[in-house]
């Protein structure tokens, strides 16, 4: 088992991903992710000079739609699926801190 990812690092990543793990789970995850990254050492070691990245298999550009209004959903249908609703809106616990 390699130590590519420490428990602290795993904890940091978990915070970014809004997930919570126990310390034992973090250790196990760190080990599993380390193993996957070890396996990815071939990719990591690759000499990529001169190779462009491919984000997408199809070389398409400029796919757009006309600026025409289409029907929206009914609010009742939308809110019927929401876990918590008040005053025609989605209700969430208090938000601490501003949006970044």
């Amino acid at each position: 088992m390699s130590g590519r990812i420490s428990r602290d690092e795993a904890a940091h990543v978990a915070r970014l991903a809004r997930l919570r793990f126990s310390d034992d789970e973090l250790d196990e995850l760190a080990a599993q992710l380390s193993a996957v990254l070890d396996h990815a050492a071939d990719v990591e070691a690759l000499d990529v000079s001169g190779i462009e990245p491919t984000s997408h298999p199809q070389p398409l550009t400029d796919v757009t739609r006309a600026d025409e209004v289409r029907p929206s959903l009914s609010r009742d249908e939308v809110l019927a699926q929401a876990p918590s609703v008040a005053e025609g809106q989605f209700r969430v616990p208090p938000i601490l801190g501003e949006a970044p």
């Binding site: 809106q89 209700r91 208090p94 501003e98």
Partner: peptide, 12 residues
């Protein structure tokens, strides 16, 4: 006020 709100409502 954001810091002592009881809850928040979201309109999309």
């Amino acid at each position: 006020r954001i810091h002592d709100a009881a809850y928040a409502l979201v309109d999309y």
